[in-house]
Design a protein around this nucleic acid. Structure first.
Lengths: 160, 160
DNA sequence: CAATCAAATGCAAGATTCTTGCATCGAGAC
DNA sequence: GTCTCGATGCAAGAATCTTGCATTTGATTG
């Protein structure tokens, strides 16, 4: 196991800024923009991936193009906030493929979900399963997205 | 300009399923899993990108690792829903780098935002600018994420 | 301030991956 | 049946990525 530089320098930050916009840019192009050689870029990227700074490399797919055009934001309030039951519902949400994002939050409700479905029928079925049948949901509020203003933006990285 | 197969067949679906998990998998590996040759995979990927089915290819970065650990979900209600002012505020949100996701929604509020900030001070400043100074915001409600259960999951693609 | 050591760098060669030309295949039109 | 057009696989060529090695850089120590 190799030992790592623990802090990210300005080269790393610039690199992250570039790859979170497009991770298929050739290394020699990144190299030129960052101001290092291509092998240096390769080694830094490898470390950033090993360290988990880069968590994954994914293609972003147009949900409508694959027949799943509906995005729905849901606020969920649970009935029982005991650790065991909270862990249970977190695990349930984690496993549910239709939930694309899920946060456990403060502020009058317990969870916020971003859900992707084919149509309202699938959403109805989703709520039935996740909120009624599987239990521990006191109430939920549904917000249907009429328009996606933006999605999957990268973290803003000011070159510190 | 080339003419395209307009529908996605099961090869495309399988391919999308794979690249939305990891878009750096070598084409010969994808080829084997999908059941086509490597050049066929390459040509399909190119078309999917040109068609916009694959919208972008990005590295997902650990927000905490780059010093921006706070995720905040905000519900925004506007004062004036006239087209012009609505377009204005959409454009404002689109341009704001701290807003990672933004949906215009039905259901008792107008927008849902997912915001990334370094700390509460930055969030306070964000609300001041976006919600008070720039106008047309009647009210907003803040939900601070205590725990990210999941994020940036791919669209569920059942091989139809 | 020089000496030392570990980590990072650039270069160049080698390995892998991607792209392209071409002949062939297959489904639909006529 | 035959024609046409798009898609395919193979193989060669092009581009990209990785690795070994000598050198440089930077922090630490004496």
């Amino acid at each position: 196991m190799q030992k790592y530089r623990s802090t990210l320098d300005r080269f790393d930050m610039k690199l992250l800024q570039l790859v979170q916009v497009s991770n298929r840019t050739p290394q020699h192009v990144l190299a030129e923009e960052v101001g290092l050689s291509a092998p240096a870029i390769a080694r830094r990227l490898q470390k950033l991936r090993e360290q988990g700074v880069i968590q994954k490399d994914m293609a972003i797919i147009d949900a409508a193009a694959v027949g799943r055009p509906l995005t729905i934001i849901v606020q969920v309030t649970v009935e029982d906030e005991s650790f065991a039951l909270l862990d249970e519902i977190k695990e349930r949400f984690r496993r549910c493929e239709q939930i694309l994002h899920c946060h456990y939050v403060t502020g009058g409700t317990d969870f916020v979900l971003i859900v992707n479905v084919r149509d309202m029928e699938e959403y109805t079925q989703f709520t039935r399963t996740q909120f009624f049948e599987l239990g521990n949901v006191k109430s939920f509020q549904t917000y249907v997205s009429m328009e996606c203003i933006k999605a999957n933006e990268g973290i803003p990285l000011d070159l510190e």
